[in-house]
Simulated assay, not measured.
Amino acid sequence: MKRIITAFIFIGILISCNSSDKTKISTRESSETKTVTESTSNDKQLNTIESNESLIATSLMAAPEESRSKCKVIGYNMAGEFVTLREGDNEFIVLADNPNQDGFNAACYHKDLEPFMARGRALRAEGKTGQEIFAMREAEMKSGQLKISPGLTLHIYYGAKTMYDPETSKVEGAQLRYVVYMPWATAESTGLPAAPMAPNHPWIMNPGTHRAHIMISPLPEEIE
C-alpha cells in the first residue's frame, strides 16, 4: 500500500514540474516575442532618394531650419542635368546633393557667394584641376574680379549613406559642418589655431589665402 501511495506522490510531482516548466517556457517565449515586436515597431522606415522632390527635401537639411521654406535650390536633378530645382527669395542658396555620386553632400551658402561658387563650377566643367581652380580664383580675388565679404557662411550636410527618413527628411548618419569665409586671414590675425586643438573646436584653414576660412565641425549628435 505504501508503495502505491509513494508512486502516486511521485507522479504528482512529475506532473507539477512539467506544468511549471511549460509555464516558464511560455512566459519566456511571450517575452521574447514582445521584445522582437517592439524592436521592429521602433525601427524607422528609410527610403531611397528617387525623385527631385526627395532630393530637394534632403538637401534643404543643410540650411537653417527657419530659412528652408524660402531657399533657392540648384544642382543636378535625377536626370543628371544641372538646373534650378526650386526658386527662392531669401539670402540662401542650396546646392543639392549630386544623385550620381556616392554618399550624400549638400551645401547651403549665402547668395553673395554665388559668383565665387559659380566660377568654381565653370572651371571644373572646363576640366581644371583643384590646384588650377585654386590658383585662378586666387588671382581673380587679388585683381578684384571676384569678391568674398568676410563672414559669409557655407553650411555642409554630408555623410556616407543616402537613405533618408521621409518624415523628417534627415539622411541616415549625415551631419553638419560650417565654413565662415575670412579672405586673407591668418592664425595671427584671428587668434585661431591653424589646426583643430580638439574635436568640435574651430580652426582656420587655408590661412593667408583668398580661401581662408574658419572651419567648425560639430560632433555627430550621437556623440554629443
Rank of each mutant, 00 (worst) to 15 (best):
I74W: 00
N77M: 09
E50R: 13
L85V: 08
I93D: 03
I49N: 05
F92P: 02
G80V: 08
S51R: 13
E66N: 10
L55D: 03
S67G: 03
V36M: 13
I56K: 01
Q45T: 08
G88V: 08
G80E: 10
N90W: 06
L85S: 05
E38T: 12
I49Q: 04
V83K: 12
I56R: 03
I56S: 02
P64T: 06
S69C: 09
V36E: 10
S51T: 10
G80C: 11
L46P: 11
L60W: 02
I93E: 02
S51E: 14
F92Q: 00
I56N: 02
A57H: 12
S59G: 06
T27S: 11
E65V: 15
R68A: 04
E87K: 13
C71V: 03
V73Y: 03
R68K: 08
E91C: 09
M78Q: 14
G80K: 06
I93L: 06
L85H: 07
D89G: 15
L95T: 01
T40A: 11
S30V: 05
Q45L: 14
T84D: 06
N47I: 13
K44S: 13
L85I: 07
A62S: 05
L46E: 07
K70M: 09
E81M: 14
N77P: 07
K70Y: 13
R68P: 07
S54P: 10
M78W: 11
E50Q: 10
A57N: 08
S69I: 07
A57I: 10
A62F: 04
T27R: 13
M61Q: 07
T48I: 10
N90K: 09
K72W: 09
E87R: 09
S30E: 06
S54K: 06
N77T: 11
Y76P: 01
E53K: 09
L55R: 00
M78N: 12
F82T: 04
K72C: 10
A63M: 02
T48Y: 14
T37L: 15
K72I: 11
F92V: 05
E32K: 00
